[in-house]
């Protein structure tokens, strides 16, 4: 029963995707082409996010910790 509902929900989501992108009115071969393009774009975006976001987050953290957190340490080192 639950599986059926999940299946229905996924089909409903797919239907909404078809309607909003207008692929609902495309011919089958155009539709498969459109889906391939969308899937490729989405996959690339996800992969790029997976590869680059952690690095950028780490760099950002380092940068901000240098500005706010690192200040007293450096003054101490100058004193010495």
């Amino acid at each position: 029963m639950d599986i059926k509902r999940v299946k229905d929900y996924i089909y409903w989501l797919y239907y909404q995707y078809l309607l909003i992108t207008c692929s609902y009115v495309l011919e089958p071969w155009e539709q498969s082409m459109f889906h391939t393009i969308t899937v490729t774009v989405v996959a690339m975006v996800v992969y790029t996010a997976y590869v680059f976001v952690p690095i950028h987050v780490r760099l950002a953290l380092e940068f901000f910790s240098q500005i706010f957190g690192g200040q007293p340490e450096s003054t101490v080192s100058i004193m010495n």
Binding site: I20, T21, C22, S23, V25, L26, E30, F34
Partner: peptide, 13 residues
């Protein structure tokens, strides 16, 4: 916005 996106897709095809 979504309507314009739809027309965009249809125009490209």
């Amino acid at each position: 916005v979504l309507t314009y996106v739809g027309y965009g897709v249809l125009t490209l095809f």
